[in-house]
Structure formats: structure tokens, C-alpha cells
Amino acid sequence: MKISEEELRKITLTAINELGDKASPELVRNIVSSAVDKLGAEAELPQAETSAAPVLDRAILTSFGLNRPGVIAKITALLAESGCDLRDVSQKIMDDFYTLIMIVDLSSSKYQMKELIEKLSKIEAELNVKIFLQHENLFRQMHRI
């Protein structure tokens, strides 16, 4: 049995009302905890400062230019080194040109986004291609309502 947040709020309010002046945050918390335990609920009490959804820290890497061996290898090697997780890759090759789009999860990256961009710009200069790394929120904001 799952207890919704709404039900949890009702239980808490009832407890507070019954306790009257004696209500303190710890006391209410204990009472609600035991009430939930009795109900055999799987619900966990929300912690004071937890945010509802995990914060997504994903970026979109776009690269294009003249196709040559080792472009993708260079980029992915850097991402691997930094500990980024590749969530999706899509690539198109037209004649001599390529376009590469990757969705990269930065949450486990050891580099800050700024450092990653600096490192990518070295690859850019070395291979004479274009590489952009932009946070996913930008694309969501512009293309999804």
C-alpha cells in the first residue's frame, strides 16, 4: 500500500490538532512515522530538504565538420576520462561532412562544465571541427512547452 503525499499531510494535520500546544516537530514526526508503519506503508516520510525530482544535469554536445578518422574517438575519450555518462548518440554523414549529437550526463563528471568546454575547444582547434556543449535545459526550454 502506498500513501500519497496528500494523505500524509492529513495524518500530520490530525496529529498536530490532537497534540495541541504540545506539538513539536520531533514529536509530530515520530507519531506520523509510527502511524505510517502501522499502516504497513512503503511511503517514506519526505525529508525536510529533499527536492521532489532528482536534478537532471545533462548537456547536449554537438559537433560538425569535415569527417576524418578519430574525431568521435577523441571526443568520447575525453568524456570517458571525465566520467561523463553518454545517454544517447546520433550521427549523420553527408559526403565529406559529419554531424554528431550526443546527450551527456554530467552528474558524475569530475570536471565542471566550463573545464569540459575548455578541453573540448582544444580538440576543436586540433581537428579543425566545431564542438558545442550546452546544457539540456536550453533545448527543453526552446523546443518543448
Binding site: 554537438t62 544517447d88 549529437i101 566545431k130 558545442f132 533545448f139 526552446m142 523546443h143
Partner: peptide, 17 residues
């Protein structure tokens, strides 16, 4: 992929070109 190829290129084009 969550985004169309064209959507991503659209944004890159706006910011870069």
C-alpha cells in the same frame, strides 16, 4: 533521442551564426 536533430541544429544556428 528526446530532441529532433533539426531542433538541436536550430538552437546551434541561432546561438552561433
Amino acid at each position: 533521442m528526446n530532441y529532433e536533430f533539426d531542433e538541436i541544429l536550430d538552437t546551434i544556428k541561432m546561438t552561433e551564426i
